[in-house]
């Protein structure tokens, strides 16, 4: 039965590139008066490295907890592999939720034996996944003797057991030293190159920007933005200008090329521009009209700032 459905999966994926791995509809979790997750609609396509970006406490882990069956949603629904919220779906997902959880008195190998039994995976594959995270020599040591970085790697090895279609990683670099962080990012890139879909929750913009193809930004359980990283992060440029009389400036720039939208905010005019815009040309253009700017500032990534504001909390 299981083998059949896996075969079916690969068959369809060869024919349709856009296959939904995960979708959520109005997913909600309420703890008393607090709305931890407030009506999330997400959609993850096969092969994506999908980032869920948001500050600590924005509902990322609660969302992932619901997707993994350990937190009961208050309302709404989610579907893995277009197969609803069945328990069996989780055997196709390798996950690392918050910190790695192991039986400390069992060795790394024994811990993975438990996971292999749960997933119904041949124990013969354990050495291979341990080798892929450089833990083969320490496989006989109890997990409690592992450093944080080693435990993180053991968790990644555990997530890889059973050759999952999806890797779901929650803050995988949390608490790691720079080398550990680099290793985890390298790991994500490798796994993505092998065709796995990756869902990565993080509060670090830089991390998401470096490894993800798609991103959704959430805050207080609400989706702020969703799209490809290229569109969202490298998207809009904004220009701020100000002169003695902003009214005149606003009128003057209406015919200037490359301006999508201009609006006055306090004493500054904020202009959304496209790639045809040139700041020097604008300056020259205005001075020819005898308007002299007191302030001219090109802000590159408005969303990045928004992200940073979010993640600064």
């Amino acid at each position: 039965m299981i083998a059949d459905s896996v075969e079916l999966f690969t068959f369809t994926s060869n024919h349709y590139n856009l296959e939904t791995v995960l979708s959520t509809t109005a997913l909600k979790k309420q703890y008393g008066p607090i709305k931890a997750v407030n009506g999330l609609d997400l959609r993850v396509e096969k092969g994506a490295v999908y980032g869920i970006l948001g500050p600590n406490g924005s509902g990322k882990t609660t969302t992932l907890g619901m997707l993994l069956g350990i937190i009961q949603p208050t309302s709404g629904a989610y579907s893995w592999f277009n197969n609803g919220s069945l328990d069996i779906n989780r055997k196709r997902i390798g996950s690392l939720l918050e910190q790695p959880n192991f039986y400390p008195y069992l060795s790394g190998e024994q811990n993975l034996k438990v996971v292999a039994k749960i997933k119904g995976v041949d124990e013969g594959t354990i050495d291979a996944v341990l080798a892929s995270v450089n833990l083969l020599e320490r496989k006989k040591s109890p997990a409690r003797t592992y450093s944080l970085g080693m435990r993180q790697r053991l968790a990644l090895a555990s997530a890889l057991l059973g050759n999952p279609d999806v890797l779901l990683l929650d803050e995988p670099t949390n608490g790691l030293d720079p080398q550990g962080i680099a290793e985890v990012r390298e790991f994500i890139t490798q796994q993505s190159a092998q065709g796995r879909t990756i869902i990565l929750a993080s509060h670090i913009l830089d991390e998401v920007e470096k490894v993800c193809t798609h991103v959704s930004v959430i805050k207080k359980g609400t989706l702020l933005a969703e799209g490809s990283v290229a569109d969202l992060i490298k998207g809009e440029t904004q220009v701020e200008i100000a002169a003695d009389n902003n009214e005149i400036v606003l009128q003057a720039i209406q015919s200037f090329t490359g301006i999508k939208k201009a609006a006055q905010e306090n004493s500054i005019i904020v202009i959304n521009v496209d790639e045809k815009f040139n700041a020097a040309q604008l300056n020259k253009y205005l001075s020819e009209k005898n308007i002299y700017l007191q302030h001219l500032n090109v802000r590159k990534k408005r969303l990045e700032e928004q992200f940073l504001e979010l993640t600064a909390e």
Binding site: G69, I70, R90, K91, Q99, N101, I118, K119
Partner: peptide, 19 residues
């Protein structure tokens, strides 16, 4: 209680066991 202390009940479910 170990399953709660080590958070392994949660992990077992994440790994694919049903409750």
């Amino acid at each position: 209680c170990n399953e709660f202390t080590y958070r392994t009940l949660r992990q077992n479910i994440i790994d694919g066991l049903t409750r």
